[in-house]
Design a protein around this nucleic acid. Structure first.
Lengths: 184, 184, 184, 184
DNA sequence: AATGAATGAGATTTCATTCAT
DNA sequence: TATGAATGAAATCTCATTCAT
């Protein structure tokens, strides 16, 4: 991607994660990106489209990262462990982006409805691996969709917990991973 | 509380849950409440204060509801079970308010920081019961704060899952309760 | 109509006739009307809707004025003479509004296409009276639509001519009327 | 003229006639001309100067075309007939340019005031031929300036009428010419 | 000769808030 | 107690123009 464009995107993540979508102004994003306001509109159609690009690049980053890392094993439980570690690491490393995603999951704006659709696809992706684990006998057969939700929710709340600690850790500890998987 | 005032509060919950805090305008809230815009300012100082009242009355409602219901038993595990059922029921019955709470937990607006403080108090409240359970030997001793977080997160994700089903259930099933408690 | 609203409409005619639709800013209209910019939006949805109201009230004014005046006679030629006098008088009295109408007849903006539709209805109206004259033997049968166009065009160019004179006259002279009718 | 430059001028006529002066953007003109936006500024000082060049080349084209064609006769009435045919033909062939001229005659922008001056020169030119006709006894002596206005106005309205027909004709018919001249 | 990324002044529009009634 | 006309600060967005290449 063009350097200025990705620069703007990073600035937007920074500002939006701090302020939320609406209070984050184009002026602030421009200032943070060290470009003129007009430049934002040279690269993006609207504030909404900056938001969408932000989310899309975030989600595809997760997917690519995970797909790359699970190649090393064929064992379904091992794969789920790898996915967990990968997502937790990403949540820590790109906490601002995740804050935005979580806070925008609610509400009936097109922006928010679209985001929910995208997150449902992420759920599909995770559920597929949980199904593999069930088929391989690691978990007992059950509502795998709900399990995927709980898995994701557990990751989020764990992350939120650690993110709020005074001395935030910046990596996914093995303890956290086991804690989350034990809930499945 | 004055009837007009609670009327406005209900209208605000309706509109804010649908649109989010910022896109919900005072005009819309007034229209939904069937009062003139000026009336909002007769009863509330500002939009922000409507929001705060909304949250405060929601949270104290939870607390009162729970304190009332757990009276029937002294057994800590029974009490946690009752709390779970109560919260789940409230989440279903007042889903709009909870949507607002969850979506406003993030970000650095005064409004949002204040909300997080209030939710931390709710966590204290829940943690206290989890500690009782640990002391009574129901769970093994561990990070009870994280347990409280996970417990609350599990409830939220479970609720979100069921709220998104085609045929939403409108009560807390015993299955859900056991599912959540088993994760502790 | 509300006083403030008609006040804004008059200010808009003043400014738009001087500057044209696009260069006329909402700031200037507000200043001319002695109200705050927000007030414009309290009474009108948009700049476009101010324009539309401006045109609509102008056109219905023409129609009402004419319908009122032609009541006095049943003779078709007399009626056409009355219409001519009425339109010319209006063009002189409300020259600013007519300037706007003429300048906005061209182009493919929705605003302009709508205006052309409205002016076509005015043409229908005029043509009807020309047809009466033809039927009564005042003119020889011919393309009455073209006659209506020419009639209107003649009125406009005559008006433009007199409006550009150093010492503008402010009424429709009988000479002008006969000049225009002689062209039919 | 340089090919790229005349290319830009044609593109500008196309876009401005469709949209009007202000809504026509330099971006659109550049796109229509298949050049980069910077190229517009390589050949023209500003948007305003593109407009002026557009008009000037249009007007001098009329003048040259007419001066060329009236050479064939010395009879003043014949010359006026030739002028009428020439202008009507041009109006049909370059209708977009004429649309722009007519729509920009109104208003007090420098651009528009300049255009009116130029059109007044065209009127001088036409009036001169009408005076010749009067002197040769073809019309009775009268306000020749007004006659020139009416003559031009008649041509415009006739043109507008035929341009709006379902099946537009693309040439000046002899009927139209006689119709216009008979009004003098 | 030609480009297109970058700009910033200025446009339209929104909306929480005020205040006279 | 309740109203709603009026406000103005601040938001998003547009676009003619510049300039380094």
């Amino acid at each position: 991607m063009n350097k200025t464009k990705s620069n703007i995107l990073m600035a937007a993540i920074e500002v939006v994660s701090k302020k939320g979508y609406h209070p984050a102004t184009m002026d602030e994003i421009a200032k943070e990106a060290n470009v003129a306001k007009g430049t934002l509109y040279y690269y993006f159609e609207s504030k909404e489209s900056i938001f969408n690009d932000m989310i899309d690049s975030g989600i595809s980053m997760i997917r690519e990262e995970i797909l790359e890392k699970i190649k090393v094993t064929e064992d379904s439980m091992q794969q789920l462990r790898i996915i967990t570690r990968a997502i937790l690491t990403l949540v820590f490393e790109r906490r601002n982006l995740f804050k935005i995603i979580i806070s925008q999951l609610w509400g009936e704006d097109i922006r928010q409805i679209e985001l929910r659709k995208k997150m449902n696809e992420v759920m599909d992706f995770i559920e597929a691996y949980i199904i593999n684990c069930v088929e391989d006998g690691y978990f007992e057969a059950a509502n795998t969709r709900l399990k995927a939700f709980n898995y994701f929710g557990a990751m989020m709340t764990t992350a939120v917990y650690y993110l709020n600690l005074e001395e935030p850790i910046d990596h996914a500890s093995e303890t956290m991973i086991e804690e989350i998987l034990s809930q499945l």
